[in-house]
Design a binder for these strands. Structure first.
Lengths: 261, 261
DNA sequence: TGACATAGAATAGTATACGATTATACTTCG
DNA sequence: CGAAGTATAATCGTATACTATTCTATGTCA
């Protein structure tokens, strides 16, 4: 399949500097579009607009690694596959570009944004700063039900081993933790960064699962939040994220930026 | 003109909570589209794609206040005015939505995002955190030519009194300061935040001009950067931005969220 | 044989056209 | 006279169709 060819050509350049290459087995076997169709069906929540739906589908496809970094997304192909015209596809791609998941090359279409250890570090550094800020805004306004929900999420995470699910629980947990802050620019930005981070986290989780320490840290975060200890929670969040970034970096460095599926 | 009517109707709701209302004289007189045409001519750098061009035009129109917060952007009108079809206009609006400058209401078009003191504070708090981080990345890599350029920008700012120009100089200054950092997610996010901040800064500058203290602080920032004093620069940046936010908040609170042109 | 030019195919980007939704003005009824 | 309902106009959203650009494969010349 064509996409496989494109990717095969890019494989070398992807190895050049600091780039992580996904497990491309499925990709090269040409199952990409099949999986996109499947993802589309899962995302087919018609409460949203068509571009929302397309964007959700492609976002999941990129984050999950179904479409490999560096590969080109053919607008016609996607449009045909999920049975819409090119216009909503283009709008979806526009959004994904703003989210940092794809990059348009003029008259040459949209490429899936590359992944790199450097970017991953940058990402987590930004999260440290912004999520501490979010804690400052949020903690004073958190209520009992929030803590209850957060603990429930942790429990679910303990029971699960599916990386996709675990990522969602991780998302949910952080989301609850910041739900005391107004839903504005800050939380939006954090969400965007978490989505980008997921591209790295999922690979790692697929290998190791969610560590017990992560769950312990999450629990401790709740305790500190409940005690309204903003400084303490901020410090723990900082090390929590720093450690996560460090773990990921070690993982990918050890793998030599090679297939990590 | 229709847009004027729309805005007139929204005027009351805009006053409800924490909202700053622009001077809408020109707007109500129906000069909006004229000014958009003018802005378009200024933005007509054909090195970019059509949606880029449209986005740049609308961005400037929104940031400058030519299109007031809360008003609805009619796709057909914009398309006709700058002589393109609706599709690139919609793509441009998609991007502006991602940037936080407009909000789509399904089947009702795109509204210019509201402005509020609360958002302004959030904005500057985020900038504090992220720009300090950028300083950490950048300062070790800054070179003599960077400092020279930064000083040149300050000199230009001293001579100018046009708020648009002053904002650009401010932009340029910060951009140079972070140019030692790789041009990735962090700098992109900062740029986005600076653009949003401009909506507030321009109004303020129109009243007061660039304060001498701002220029002094900029100079001091360069000195600290040259001495590779990351902590010092970070601290100064924090107070620099905090003070700016405080000035703006006082200004808009005094104005009682009323016209500030 | 290999670099370069050229024709054709594939694809991105945009305009036009149309169906669906929402706003507006008018009419009708209580 | 005001509220509700209906008809009409305006506008959004998307599919279709066309143009311009880029990619690819074939052929030509050094």
């Amino acid at each position: 399949m064509e996409l496989g060819k494109v990717y095969a050509r890019r494989l070398q350049s992807l190895r050049i500097d600091n780039i992580i290459v996904y497990d491309t087995d499925e990709f090269i076997r040409g199952k990409v579009m099949d999986s996109i169709k499947q993802i589309a069906e899962r995302c087919a929540d018609r409460s949203h607009s068509t571009p929302d739906f397309v964007a959700a589908t492609l976002r999941e496809a990129i984050v999950s690694g179904a479409i490999a970094p560096g590969s080109v997304i053919r607008q016609d192909t996607v449009a045909a596959e999920i049975d819409v015209s090119k216009i909503p596809v283009r709008e979806a791609l526009s959004r994904l570009e703003a989210e940092g998941l794809v990059q348009f090359q003029r008259n040459r279409g949209a490429e899936v944004a590359p992944v790199s250890i450097a970017q991953m570090r940058e990402l987590f550094a930004m999260r440290e700063r912004l999520e501490c800020l979010a804690l400052e805004y949020s903690i004073p306004n958190l209520t009992k039900p929030d803590f209850v929900r957060a603990r429930a999420v942790i429990k679910q995470a303990k029971r699960s081993s599916d990386p996709v699910e675990l990522c969602r629980f991780n998302h949910d947990f952080h989301e609850i933790l910041y739900s005391g802050a107004a839903d504005g620019l800050l939380r939006d930005t954090i969400r965007r960064l978490m989505t980008l981070a997921e591209r790295y986290i999922r690979i790692h989780l697929r290998m190791t699962g969610m560590s017990a320490r992560t769950n312990a840290e999450h629990k401790e975060l709740i305790r500190l939040a409940r005690d309204r200890d903003i400084d303490g929670a901020g410090e723990l969040m900082t090390v929590h994220l720093a450690k996560a970034a460090q773990r990921l970096a070690r993982h990918f460095e050890k793998q030599g930026f090679s297939p990590a599926g």
